[in-house]
Every structure is written in structure tokens, then in C-alpha cells.
């Protein structure tokens, strides 16, 4: 999948989980988004797994520092 396709699918995932539209950029982090707490985080991971049909080895996405890195991770998994 292309980065922009991933980004737009990911926006839908965020909207579904957080219950409101969220403007995502590569540099967006949890601190920038109202409601993106640890509980929402797990839901975002699980919803992404379902949306992109992938599985993350760990749900600690601490190694993804921001949305851009997360998109890169999804890019490699859906390649």
C-alpha cells in the first residue's frame, strides 16, 4: 500500500476509535491528540490490525515515535 493510502485509512481508524475526526500528520504524537490515552492506544493498535489485516509482535508501539513511523511500520507489513 502507498503511504497516502495508509494515512487516509489510518485517519478513519482514528476517527472510529476516538469518536471524532483527527487530522494526522507524520509528526503527530499521542500528546497532540485529545483522547489518545493508553486505553485508546490499545484500541488504535487493534483497530489497525483489523483494518490492515496485519499483526504486531508487540502492542508496545513505543518504538514508533509518531504517526509517520507507524505508517512506515504498516508500509513494511503490508508490502
Amino acid at each position: 500500500m502507498r503511504r497516502d493510502e495508509i494515512m487516509s485509512s489510518l485517519s478513519r481508524v482514528f476517527e472510529e476509535v476516538l469518536g471524532k475526526p483527527v487530522e494526522l500528520r507524520d509528526e503527530t504524537t499521542a500528546a497532540d491528540v485529545d483522547g489518545w490515552d493508553s486505553v485508546a492506544h490499545v484500541m488504535l493498535i487493534l483497530a489497525s490490525e483489523r483494518q490492515f489485516d496485519v499483526r504486531f509482535e508487540s502492542i508496545e508501539i513505543a518504538n514508533a515515535a509518531n504517526v509517520g513511523e507507524f505508517v512506515t511500520l504498516l508500509e513494511s507489513k503490508t508490502a
Partner: peptide, 14 residues
């Protein structure tokens, strides 16, 4: 088990 180890979630939320 990922969810249990990381967040003590006892079943997949689905």
C-alpha cells in the same frame, strides 16, 4: 497473550 502481558486485558476485545 500480548494483550495480557502488556495491558492485563484478559480476552481479545473483539
Amino acid at each position: 497473550e500480548r494483550l495480557w502481558f502488556y495491558s492485563k486485558i484478559s480476552c481479545h476485545p473483539e
